[in-house]
Simulated assay, not measured.
Amino acid sequence: MSDPQPTPALTAEFWEGRYQDGTDRWDLGQPAPPFVSLLQSPQAPAPGRIAVLGSGRGHDALLFAQHRFEVVGFDFAPSAIVAARAAAQERGLSAQFLQRDIFELDTEFAHQFDYVLEHTCFCAILPEQRGDYVRLVQNLLRPAGELIGLFWTHGRAGGPPFGVSVTELYQQFQPEFEVVLLERATNSVEGRRNEEYLVRLRMKVQQS
């Protein structure tokens, strides 16, 4: 039996290469349908300032901008940022897109957001970075801020995308967050059907 392929170094150059060679299969070419449904529902979150991690070409970010959120998207890949900015301009939407390593955001953007949006970023980072991701979200959010996420809970080996279980989500985000919503998405795109969970997690307010 051959040895498993090593995980590639997940650098900015790696992700840019995926865009350049057309293997950016995480890009749906549209906003994720569960986010569309959420924002059209009576339970839609109130507009606020939202950080979009791994914003890609901006499909989800611009959906939230369309619903009056103040959007700042972050991505490693320069061509994704260029495409997102162009899409915002073409549609006349106000949104900011910045090329950044997300794990270097907490100093520049500490406690500046009411929300963090997650979709295909958590599954793209190495599993050993997940604790750092949780701390990053904590540091970006204002008191009682929320993480809004669509998590891919597939159980296939390897990655990226790396799968995650609902149990691990609880383990990673507690005790700092409380669950506002955690439900299996009913309108995921083909290929992710029955493998995505729509999640809203609110930062617990620390008692003095």
Rank of each mutant, 00 (worst) to 15 (best):
Y19N: 04
D21T: 08
G22T: 10
G22N: 07
T23L: 04
D24P: 05
D24L: 00
R25D: 08
L28V: 08
L28A: 14
G29E: 02
G29V: 06
Q30E: 15
Q30H: 15
P31S: 12
P31L: 09
A32T: 13
A32N: 15
P34K: 10
P34L: 08
F35A: 09
V36R: 06
S37H: 13
S41G: 11
S41T: 12
S41K: 10
Q43H: 14
P45D: 13
A46D: 13
A46R: 15
P47N: 12
P47Y: 04
G48L: 14
G48Q: 01
R49E: 15
R49Y: 12
R49V: 09
A51I: 14
G54Q: 03
G54S: 10
G54R: 02
S55H: 05
G56F: 04
R57F: 00
H59R: 11
H59F: 02
H59V: 01
D60G: 05
A61S: 14
L62K: 02
L63M: 01
F64S: 03
A65I: 10
A65G: 00
Q66R: 15
Q66P: 03
Q66V: 06
E70S: 14
V71C: 06
V71E: 00
V72I: 13
V72E: 04
G73E: 01
G73K: 01
G73A: 09
F74L: 12
D75T: 09
F76D: 02
A77P: 04
A77Y: 03
S79G: 05
S79C: 08
A80K: 03
A80N: 02
V82P: 06
